[in-house]
Computed example of a mutant assay.
Amino acid sequence: MAGGIELSSDEAGRAPSGAPVSTPSDDAFCSIERTVGIVGDRWVLLILRQVLAGGMTRFTDLVKSLGVAPNILTNRLEMLTRSGVLERREYREPGSRPRMSYHPTAAGRELLVVLAALGQWGDDHIPPVGGVGQTRETTRDGEPVRVGFVTDAALLLPAEEISFVYTEVGRDRIRAAAAEAEGRPQGQGRP
Rank of each mutant, 00 (worst) to 15 (best):
E93S: 12
R42H: 07
Q134W: 01
Y102E: 03
S83R: 09
P94Y: 01
C30L: 14
R92T: 02
P128E: 10
Y102D: 02
R109L: 03
L77Y: 06
G142I: 08
L115F: 03
T81S: 05
I72Q: 15
S101E: 05
T74E: 07
L156S: 13
S65G: 10
R58L: 08
L77V: 02
T74S: 12
L157K: 13
L62P: 00
H125E: 15
G148Q: 10
A53E: 12
H103F: 00
D123P: 13
L157R: 14
E90N: 07
G37W: 00
L66V: 00
W121V: 14
A106Q: 13
R171H: 10
V113I: 15
S96Q: 15
T57E: 11
R173T: 06
F149V: 15
E161N: 14
I72W: 11
R109N: 12
V150L: 07
V44Q: 08
S163D: 13
F29N: 11
C30I: 08
G67T: 05
R49A: 09
V132P: 12
L157A: 07
Y166M: 15
T138N: 07
D27M: 04
H103V: 04
P70G: 06
T81E: 03
Q134A: 07
R136I: 11
P104A: 07
T139N: 11
L157H: 10
D124E: 14
G55F: 03
T81N: 09
D124A: 07
T167R: 14
G95T: 10
T135Q: 10
V63I: 11
A69S: 09
T74N: 12
D172P: 09
M100H: 06
M79H: 05
G108Q: 02
D41C: 04
M100G: 03
I162H: 00
V165T: 15
D123H: 12
L155N: 12
I38C: 04
W43D: 01
W43K: 12
R140I: 14
R109I: 03
V85E: 01
N75R: 15
T74I: 01
F29D: 10
L115M: 13
E137R: 15
D172G: 11
E160F: 00
P158R: 13
T74C: 00
E160C: 05
C30R: 14
L45C: 13
D123Y: 01
E168L: 13
A154Q: 15
D152E: 13
V68L: 13
I72R: 15
G119H: 09
E143L: 04
V150R: 13
R136C: 04
A153Q: 13
G67L: 02
N75Q: 14
R58A: 09
D141H: 07
L73H: 07
Q134L: 09
D41E: 04
Q134K: 15
L73F: 02
R42M: 03
C30T: 12
P144H: 02
I32T: 11
L77Q: 06
L48T: 06
V44I: 12
G133D: 06
T81L: 06
G108H: 05
V150H: 08
G67C: 09
I162F: 03
R97H: 06
E87Y: 02
V147G: 03
M100P: 04
A153L: 11
C30Y: 12
H103R: 14
E93R: 14
Q50T: 01
Y166W: 01
L48M: 14
L66D: 09
R171F: 01
L111A: 04
D27V: 03
T74D: 06
G67I: 03
P144K: 08
L157C: 07
E110Y: 00
V132H: 07
